[in-house]
Design a binder for these strands. Structure first.
Lengths: 166, 166
DNA sequence: GTCCCTATACTCGGATAGCAAGTGTCCGAGTATAGGCGG
DNA sequence: CCGCCTATACTCGGACACTTGCTATCCGAGTATAGGGAC
């Protein structure tokens, strides 16, 4: 079992959008070009991010994507949940209520202990993802990334971004 | 994204094996019958548990499965890892090193911050699963399960288990 | 009665199909701009 | 010269094929037992 590759793409794409000038927009095709990703497929997931209210999409000639909230208010969990869905990793099918030793369904009061434990573990995972914001990862990237890459990113962004009508 | 249904089967099956008399064995077919599971498919995953050293498999007429360790020394993570594999949920493909703004690969010193954050979250998930042992869930089940079900389980087990040659 | 041998019945394990979900792609609906035309 | 209108180019969003991995199944390799026969 593994997370969809699109999760990585979505997080990196959001990180790129952080350095977008306020009010500007960046087309999905440019966003895909920045990481050499398949544009059409990335667009599919950018749409998911838009539905989740993480990014805003504006159509038309000057259109594109921009963050819908400040980076400090977007957590990694928000992005993961938008791309993968909020459904839990573990789904209890209540097999304990089946088989030769099963009692009538109404006799099972509390939830299945195994499902509970799995749910707790998922909650810990989710809590850790909620603790990290987009601002955090961008700050870390800005410190660790090669200076030349930061420079080129700024230049590329200036050329690719669609500035608002001033 | 969701975990394989076999994870639930494996945990419940191990929980059943806890109440097996010491030295006895329970065939995979019986184990499947207890939860009305597809026997052939469950066998596939029981083999995984055996490879991981969680259960022992003995072949032959009196053969079957038994736990390889005391229930208190088997964690939920052990079972999940055995069934799903130890590969991380999130796999970083280093897309930051690609595209127009990328620097030469050797310029990227530390690991990708996003991958690090995802890995931390997974570690929290794993830690929570390692905190819960098979003994824990069985104790909880024994308390919460309907008494009639516990009774029937004991009877069924007495009939299905293959006792060691005394 | 005791021992040995053989046939049997039962076990697990890996190799083989079917299906759902993730992956990848395309085209249509909609909008802000750019240019041409009229006043 | 200025304003309006139209055609254009560009955007996103949802509908359509393809590949990977989970789901399900079967048959073969191997072993402890049970029974029969010989001593």
């Amino acid at each position: 079992m593994r997370l969809s590759e699109a999760v990585e793409w979505a997080i990196h794409s959001c990180a790129v959008l952080v350095s977008l000038p306020h009010g500007a927009a960046l087309p999905g095709a440019k966003l895909a070009e920045f990481h050499e990703l398949p544009g059409a497929y990335l667009a599919k997931h950018l749409a998911s991010l838009a539905r989740a209210g993480i990014v805003e999409a504006t159509v038309g000639r000057q259109g594109g994507y921009r963050l819908a909230r400040p980076p400090a208010e977007i957590t990694l969990w928000d992005i993961v949940a938008a791309v993968e869905g909020e459904e839990p990793l573990f789904r209890c099918t209540e097999i304990r209520r089946r088989g030769p030793a099963a009692d009538r369904p109404s006799a099972y009061k509390g939830p299945c202990g195994i499902a509970l434990a799995m749910r707790n573990a998922e909650a810990a995972w989710r809590a850790e993802l909620e603790r990290v914001t987009l601002a955090d990862v961008c700050l870390g990237a800005l410190v660790n990334a090669p200076p030349a890459s930061v420079q080129r990113t700024a230049e590329w962004m200036a050329a690719a971004a669609k500035l608002p009508t001033a």
